[in-house]
Design a protein around this nucleic acid. Structure first.
Lengths: 213, 213
DNA sequence: AGGTTAACGGAACTCCAGACCCGTTAGCCA
DNA sequence: TGGCTAACGGGTCTGGAGTTCCGTTAACCT
């Protein structure tokens, strides 16, 4: 989000001339959009304000992104491209805890937390934005799924364990807490999420139903 | 939501004359708001449209609720008052599964699912609406917490288990799935959430850190 | 059963988000 | 390195969300 933006990939496929200036404008607008979303939330976001922050013409923002949800969708596509490295600790509980702590730190950060809330709100309002959000989380889940497969190889988890489902189970209580309670997201909540998921995994709660023999 | 509305309690404490017509207007507007939210989502909701559906003057809606988020906050207060009975099955897994299935059915229903998404979106945009959402979930969690305490009494869960945390753990993966994936919320997902939570509970993952001896 | 006034509701007004027009800038290619 | 044109951007216009005004309705009280 906050550093360099990836390839200007999401400019429509047939588009000519996605070079220099266009990419610069996109980066500036997405950065500004992230700031504005974090500060004012989804409902109070206006594209003119984003344009002002990005030092870009209002017309440009309206033409390229059109709506607030359209802009958020592109922001999510951009966010999906910037991936942080996964740490490997050698045990399932260790890896899940590392993941939980990463999510917890992200959501507990005032700016990032507000940004994620805003992005989720936007996704509930527009199918295309929802798709972009789904792709974002799909990327994140895929990045971490290998640690579950390794746990299966080590015998820490039963064969047939659904890796994606395990990774989602770690994040779920953190997001649920962020959205539905006033309690702060502390590291203890992250550790609890990881421990609970590890216990349920060992107990076989995430084993995929096997195909009929 | 869809049947009779509770007491007109949330009309400001000092308010005189909350009887007859006023209560009728509130009920009509909240019903209309629920419909409009479910159909058009949070972003496309306009108060004039709600007034039209409720067959009530625009002015009335603007005066009493002011903003979309204010209206949603009142809707949530109303939703918190209508509670459905909790079933008791005699086992922790049975009770958690009943809870998970209830949540799953609610979120899988097109209207209710859309309504919950919209309500969550609204809560991310306004602190007062967020408070109302927190109260709503607090009520629901409190209704179900006794089943965990009963499980502790029966010896199915360790002493010191945090009942609220267990109940939240059941809903969390269902909401997470609703918001971040395109996959449908089927009964299997509910059963998995209940089974995982029961396993983690038995393993002691939700035992509160005991106060220093 | 009649007076008081909280609350409702139609209509006219304000204001700004978003659309449109058209001149300007700067990638891209011969 | 110069021409072509995609993309940018200032200025202006407009529809509709939200506000204000004031007359009307119907709860509540004695």
């Amino acid at each position: 989000m906050n550093a360099e933006h990836g390839t200007p990939a999401s400019a429509e496929p047939g588009t000519l001339r996605p070079g220099g200036r266009t990419a610069r404008v996109r980066a500036a607008v997405l950065d500004a959009a992230g700031d504005a979303l974090a500060e004012q939330g989804f409902a109070h976001l206006d594209l003119a304000d984003v344009a002002r922050r990005a030092e870009v013409g209002r017309t440009t923002v309206y033409r390229r992104w059109g709506t607030v949800t359209g802009l958020v969708a592109d922001l999510l596509t951009d966010m999906a491209e910037s991936s942080l490295p996964r740490s490997e600790t050698g045990s399932l509980l260790g890896d899940l805890t590392a993941n939980a702590r990463l999510v917890q730190r992200t959501l507990a950060d005032p700016r990032q937390g507000a940004l994620f809330r805003a992005v989720i709100a936007a996704a509930t309002c527009e199918p295309r934005t929802a798709e972009a959000l789904h792709r974002f989380y799909d990327v994140r889940v895929r990045e971490w799924a290998p640690c579950v497969r390794q746990a299966v190889d080590r015998g820490e988890a039963p064969a047939g364990t659904d890796a994606h489902e395990v990774i989602r189970a770690v994040s779920a209580p953190l997001y649920y807490r962020l959205l539905t309670t006033a309690e702060p997201l502390d590291p203890a909540a992250a550790d609890r999420a990881a421990a609970a998921t590890a216990a349920a995994t060992r107990a076989g709660a995430y084993v995929r139903p096997s195909p009929a023999p």
